[in-house]
Structures are given as C-alpha cells and as structure tokens.
Design a protein around this nucleic acid. Structure first.
Lengths: 234, 234
DNA sequence: TTCAAATATATTTTCGAAGATTCCGAGGAT
DNA sequence: ATCCTCGGAATCTTCGAAAATATATTTGAA
C-alpha cells in the first residue's frame, strides 16, 4: 500500500512553502484580512504563517508583480492601496477585455460552448441573489462563483492566453473591492435578466448585441459601486 | 561639497541587488542572451552576476509573474519558451490594447498631445529605417526607440494605468521575438506612410480611421513576422 | 539483455545569522 | 521655538550553510 499517490497523467505536485505562502497571502489580501495600504512587517508574517523569510519574500515579490502589493526599496512591502480611480480603471478595462474575448469566443463557437453557457445560466437561475444585508458570506461566495463562472463561460472559446491572464489579474483586483464594499454593490438590483440577455445574444452569435449588453451590464455594476460612498475606497 | 545627490522632487533611489539583478536578467532575456527555453541554473547565474541566491530568486520570481520565465516547482526556472502561437497572441492583443488606448487618448486629446505625436513622427521621418542585413544593432535600437516612442505618443493621453501596464508587458515579450528574428521582419517594407496616416487620423480625432489604420499596420507587421520561417520560433 | 530498486549526485528550497538602510528621538546651536 | 546633527533601535536585505527534492548511476534479479 505504499504506491505513489498520483493516478493517471496528473503528477502530484509537491507544493513548496513559497507557493503556499503565495496562496495564503493572496486570499488574505483579496478578502482584505490584510487591508489596503497596510504595511507588511516580516516578523509579523513570519510568526503568522510560521515560515521563514525567503519563501515569504518570494511570494510577496510575485504578488508585487501582479499589483497586489507594492515594494518600496529598503522600506519593505505594503498592501496595494485602493482608490476609486483604480476601481473605475479596473472595471472599464475588464469590460473591454471581456468584449474582445467574447468576440474571439464567438469566432470559435461550437455546441460545447453553448452548452456551458446554458449550464452556467441555469446555475445562476437556480440560486437567487442573496439580498442586501442578511449577508451570509458563504451564500455570497457561492453566488459570486456562479456569477464568475457565467462570465467565464462567455469567454470559454477565447484562445488568447494573454487576454485570459490579464483578465484574471483584473478579476482578482476587483474581488478585493467587492470585499471592501461588503457586497452592497449589486445586491440591490436583480441582474438575472441581463445575464439571460447575454446568453441569448451569445447563442445568436450576435457580436454587436453582446458587446452592447456587456457594456451596459458592467456599466450598471460600476455605477452601483461608485454610487455608495465608501470610506475604505478614497 | 557633500550635499545629497538629488535635486528637485526626485529622490535618489538606493538600488538593491535584487533590482539590479532583475534589470540585468530582463534585458538579457529580451536580447535573447538567455535563449528561450534554456534552463537557469543558480550556480551559473550566481557566478555570472556575482551575487547571492536570495536576490536572484526574488528577481526570477518577479520575472516569472511577468511571464518572461517559467517556474517549475522543485525543478527551477526556465526562460519562457517562444512559439508562433504565442507571438501571434501577443501581436493581436497589443493591437487591441492600442486601439482601446488610442480611443481613450483621443477623448482626452489636447495641444500637448498633438505636439508629442508630431514630434515623434518627425523623429521617425528623420531617421530612415535601417535596411535588411547591414544590421548595425545600434542603428536598429535607435530606430526601435523612435518607433516605440511614436506608438506610445498615440496613447499619451490614455489614463488607464492597467492598460498601459499590460501593454508594456506585451511590448517586452514582443521585443524578445524581434531579437529572435534579427530585425528581418519589417525591414523589407517602408512603413513611414503608415505612421503618417496614423498621425493624421489622430490629429483629426478620427477614431474609426485610426483603429482601422492600427489594425492594418500591426497586421502587416504580423504577416511579415510569420511569413519568414524561423527555426528559433517553432 | 532488460527492468526495477537502491544508492549516489546534483539542484533546488529553506532557514538562521550577518550586513545595510531607514526611521525616530535626544541633544545642541541658531 | 525651530532647525540641524548625531547616535541607537527597528527593519529590510543579503549571504552561506542545512534540509528537501529531483536526476543520474549503479546494482541485482528475472
């Protein structure tokens, strides 16, 4: 019974401490356990995560390259600050990338693509958006996953590795802002019809329509986000 | 005479070994001194750059996050491999980003913007494109700088930090491929007229025209790059 | 001969301590 | 009172050695 753990073509990846630290730090930053702008002291984190300096620094360097933390020479790392300008930039940019991606996706559309979209839409239909302030975080996270999954489905046939990479970066940044606004943002409005329209346009291969719908959809989210003043987003 | 070196608002940044290693590694990768796919052994680089492991690993981690090197757990780093698919993806993506950026730029257009475009165009006019294989690298580099500067001028009023950031990433990746093809690529054709048309459309604030011209311009470059089979780009 | 296990070697990853740099406050001069 | 200089403490940065993992070689048996 001492056989190696891996079955099939997947090799069990032996994680490194640095990779674990990277993941932990990343989720802590995305969930704003480490709040924007806070200084990062190595002694603190060393104790917090129970690891040494080297993997910690390497993980932070990686996060710095992704824009989740800032490195100031000889002054250490800080969690990247949040600002309304930055938020608006992220939303707009993500909108543009989604438009490009969905166009490429339509160019490669096939039955499996349609199936995935319909599946994702079904999951969105089955789960009503958790309302306002009865905030069960697990419910919200589940809804977020389904929401993200739907939008990813639209880009499922996009073959641009770079586009998807940039998009993921932006999505990470965005989820930090969602945490900051405690999911207040879109909670007010029921956006299921918007997603249904998006799915319909996708199946119809209507590029212009889907771009228009996407811009409107994301535009409304942006307005909702910017409308509520939030002391944590200067 | 012992006054601090900085004058004005710029503070002299005390560079770290890691930052130097990052810069050196980056230019070596961009110039393909470190060829795509080659394994990176720490002992080699430690000797080559004359530094310790920690700054080297941190620099590589940063480059890994930017996609210039690949990290395989417990197997070390490799220079990111090159491929035609990747090249095409980069070019297309850069074209899209430039289109978005120039549109935003036009929205914020002012006299200074026009001036910078005309200035960049002038510098392009004054320096004929070095022809084919009499390749003086210094000339080529100078032309590349002017060329890059012209295209950057078009986006000079774009306020999206994220767009410019992604664009820079792609430009770095692209310059690696330009090194690989030894500047053969665009050398054949005289693209000054294309740049003049771009400048004209920019000054006329003609968004549709400039997008069309950009796509055509970059499309031709892509064709030139892909037409010549290159053993170094599988 | 061929395959598989076991050992040996090479390389990466991580730790703990030493070297630099910045930050903060005390002391003194204007 | 304000400004400047000068330690001293805190913090980040770097090095060199130890631990962990992967790769290559050898050995033994079918």
């Amino acid at each position: 019974m001492d056989m190696p753990l891996e079955k099939g073509p997947l090799r069990r990846t032996v994680r490194t401490i640095m990779a674990d630290a990277y993941t932990d730090l990343r989720t802590d930053i995305l969930n704003c356990v480490l709040e924007p702008g806070t200084r990062i002291r190595f002694e603190d984190l060393k104790a917090l995560y129970g690891i040494g300096l080297s993997p910690l620094r390497e993980a932070l360097m990686r996060l710095a390259a992704e824009g989740l933390v800032i490195l100031e020479q000889h002054k250490g790392f800080r969690v990247a600050p949040a600002s309304r300008d930055d938020l608006l930039d992220i939303i707009r940019m993500r909108c543009e990338l989604d438009c490009i991606g969905v166009e490429q996706s339509i160019a490669n559309a096939d039955d499996a693509w349609e199936a995935r979209i319909l599946g994702a839409l079904h999951q969105l239909r089955k789960m009503p958006k958790p309302l306002g302030d009865d905030g069960d975080d697990r419910l919200w996270n589940e809804w977020e996953i389904r929401h993200r999954n739907f939008h990813s489905a639209l880009l499922d046939r996009c073959e641009s590795v770079w586009l998807l990479r940039f998009r993921d970066t932006l999505y990470d940044q965005l989820s930090r802002y969602k945490t900051l606004s405690n999911h207040y943002l879109g909670a007010q409005r029921n956006d299921l019809p918007e997603h249904e329209a998006l799915a319909e346009a996708a199946l119809a291969r209507d590029i212009d329509a889907i771009k228009r719908l996407l811009r409107a959809h994301i535009g409304l989210t942006a307005e909702a986000l910017m409308a509520t003043p939030n002391p944590k987003i200067p």
